[in-house]
Amino acid sequence: MTTTTSHTGLDLEAKLELYRVQVALRQFETRAYDLFLENYVKGTSHLSLGQEAIAAGFAAAMRPDDYTFATYRGHAHTLARGVPMTPVLAELMGRTNGLMAGKGGSMHLTSVEHGVLGSYAVIGAHLPIACGAAWSAQYRGTEQVAVCFFGDGSTNIGAFHEALNLAAIWKLPVVFVCENNLWMEYTRTTEITAVPNPAADRASAYGLESIIVDGNDVDAVYEVATTAMARARAGGGPSMIEALTYRHGGHSRADPGKYRPEAEVAEWLARDPIPMYHARLLAEGATEAQLVEIEHSVAAEVEVATEEAKAGPTPGADLLMKDVWADGGSAWRN
């Protein structure tokens, strides 16, 4: 088993960008929650508060034409690939200036032009789909890599195992990333999983190395991501990375997360990836003013996105019957 923690490999400018992305994800998710409480965001949403380092670290290691496959907890992975805040927030609010004009919602964020090939809301389904994108890249010889994020709960469904086996036998350029936040919805993952590390302990069954990384340390995530992606690009096949992390809130917007012991929550809040990284950057030569400037500029960006999203029109009937088929329509008969 390899446990990776590293603080090396990036210059200060690159690390400030990693900080900016994490702060942006944090402030976006906080705003999304507030807008839910104000009834601007309808339906459900699953926030990545506390898990920002994984999205930020991987996105930084990806090429612009690489593919991201995310789950319903996908706001962070979508934004980290460079999708602007306004269309994401507007999508959550069901507006026509949303990323999918309001037709997908929080759980299905997709932006093909940014390589975000979708957020999938049925557990496990996107692992084989990511294999397909990787198969396509392999066949076309493009050296693109598919990165597939999923939660610890996904490791117990059949599609997980089918995908790992296929990726291994076809040596597909895919990186599987388990965001192990210790809780499968409302149940502790170790209570319903045969092994202590739900992804890493299964890797060897498919001939893969067991890799566990501190998912709250963006530098460590970046390093392990870079290694796995280089391997995939070079034809070395898939990797499985288990990133240990913790969600600060509940599973979804309706869940206060009260089933978790207070001491455990406190322990992980003390390991919040953003203050930790803030302290590290100061130690590595950044100034407090630089970091505050980043936080303020992100806050301003969130304000603008909020106003733009709120100003977006609600969709009309013209959108309802569009785009079932590639011809743009929905006719099933002549």
Binding site: Y67, L117, A125, H126, L127, P128, I129, A130, C131, G132, A133, A134, W135, S136, A137, Y139, R140, A146, G158, A159, E162, A163, N165, L166, I169
Partner: peptide, 20 residues
């Protein structure tokens, strides 16, 4: 392919959305 119907159709889907 292996006897993995989800993998077969998932692979087909991912390939179709990326040019095949």
């Amino acid at each position: 392919t292996p006897i993995s119907e989800q993998a077969i159709l998932g692979a087909a889907m991912g390939a179709a959305m990326t040019g095949l």
